[in-house]
Amino acid sequence: MPLPRLIPCLDVADGRVVKGVRFESMRDVGDPVELGAAYSDAGADELVFLDITATLDKRAAAVATAARVAEQVTIPFTFGGGIRTVDDACAVLEAGADKVSVNSAALARPALIEELAATLGSQAVVVAIDTEDGRVRSHSATREAGRDTLEWARECESRGAGELLVTSIDRDGTRNGYDVEQLARIGDAVQLPVIASGGAGNARHVADALAVASAALLASILHEDPARLVSLRAELKELGICLR
């Protein structure tokens, strides 16, 4: 198996990294290229950019950001948020992204996964699954998607997904630890790599997630501070996790 991966996740709106969209007014915390490059230097294995642009022309915004990131960042990155068609995905990949992440669009029309895999290859197709109590939720976790999480995970795999990015909604932002039991169940149900998301508060939490998942997505634990990634990596190595 390749080495376990640490993947900082950056929320991007209108070309800037932002935070606090859900519960507070949106705050600008930096430039995606500068922050991405700093995380790369700090030892990130990959990056995820989640476009939360509220305006209609999401695709143009995503492509422009992906192009700027690709010029400076020499590690792989995934782009998600607002990708609804193969053309959307191709535009982002042609700009220099390595993978796209789809969520609600795949739930609304699962054949999108097959179309993306056929055109881009499975390795470029991440399906993000927001889950709570074994059920899938859509539209930023605001709606019940009417699907069992394990069944949806297996369906994503059979339709050609390359990775599953699994967010445990009830843990997201709590810093109480990942839902390791649920991640293990999903990992057992598929042969795909699983990226764990939601709940990281300390190095022990991340180590526990990496025992059952191939990668850990890091959001609020980093405070948009690349120096925190450096210290987290050191703490994980102390805990016996073999990193790049």
Binding site: M1, P2, L3, R5, D45, D98, Q123, G162, L192, P193
Partner: peptide
Amino acid sequence: DGRVPRIGWAMVGDDVYWFAHS
């Protein structure tokens, strides 16, 4: 064997490179 696609960093000799393949 293992997770497929095989995605991530792995050693080749003394260097570590990023792979993504099935």
